[in-house]
């Protein structure tokens, strides 16, 4: 058995020990995970962003235009120094402005217009009617400018049923997802570590 399998088994059991109660072994494994994750992401950021997008273009290829975004990046780090925090607002303003400009039309097109179109095109079928009822009644439930009484209250009530079905389906999928993670660890423990299964 190789050393990697032994380390992975030890850390898996450390994490599982939390199911009994919190303990130093769990804390150790948890802190190790956080530390390694942060270190990995930092190295990736340096290797895939800082070096190819700033250091190499400026110092190796002499493309001085890259200094401007570099300065804006340094401004972001000045948030840690109260006297110069105001400079970071310039970078944040640029990010928010450009980000919103790119995101708003794309989101409206992809999530509003396309979804509205999809909920209308199949209106003649049973599925289409159910989708329409689901949208209309759920929207009615979240409309608070009219009291939920009478026919409007009944529609809003129907909206809560659709919401409950959605929550139930999501919870079911969540259980499946979490069990899958347990299956992955069990396959490792019973297979790679104990060699009971192939």
């Amino acid at each position: 058995m190789n050393i990697e399998t032994l380390i992975a088994t030890f850390l898996t059991l450390c994490i599982f020990s939390f199911l009994y109660k919190d303990n130093p072994f769990y804390k150790f494994a948890e802190h190790l995970l956080v530390g390694i994750s942060v270190g990995y992401v930092l190295v990736m950021a340096v290797n895939t962003t800082l070096m190819p997008k700033l250091v190499n273009p400026v110092f190796k290829q002499g493309e001085l235009g890259y200094i401007i975004p570099g300065i804006l990046g340094i401004f972001m780090l000045l948030r840690f120094f109260p006297r110069y925090t105001w400079l970071s607002r310039i970078s944040i303003a640029l990010i928010i402005g450009a980000g919103a400009g790119v995101a708003i039309p794309a989101t409206i097109q992809a999530r509003l217009f396309s979804q509205m179109q999809a909920s209308m095109k199949d209106f003649a079928s049973i599925d289409g009617i159910i989708i329409f009822l689901g949208i209309a009644s759920t929207l009615a439930y979240f409309f608070f400018s009219k009291e939920h009484k009478g026919w409007f209250g009944a529609t809003a009530k129907m909206g809560t049923w659709f919401l409950m079905i959605f929550f139930g389906a999501t919870f079911g999928y969540t259980v499946m997802s979490r069990i899958s993670l347990l299956i992955g660890r069990m396959q490792f423990l019973l297979g790679d570590f104990l060699h009971i299964i192939k």
Partner: peptide
């Protein structure tokens, strides 16, 4: 979907966690 499908219209699918 937001940035590739709505703008450039490639065929797109996803393989995602159940959750």
């Amino acid at each position: 979907v937001d940035y590739a499908v709505s703008r450039y219209h490639p065929k797109f699918a996803c393989a995602t966690t159940a959750v």
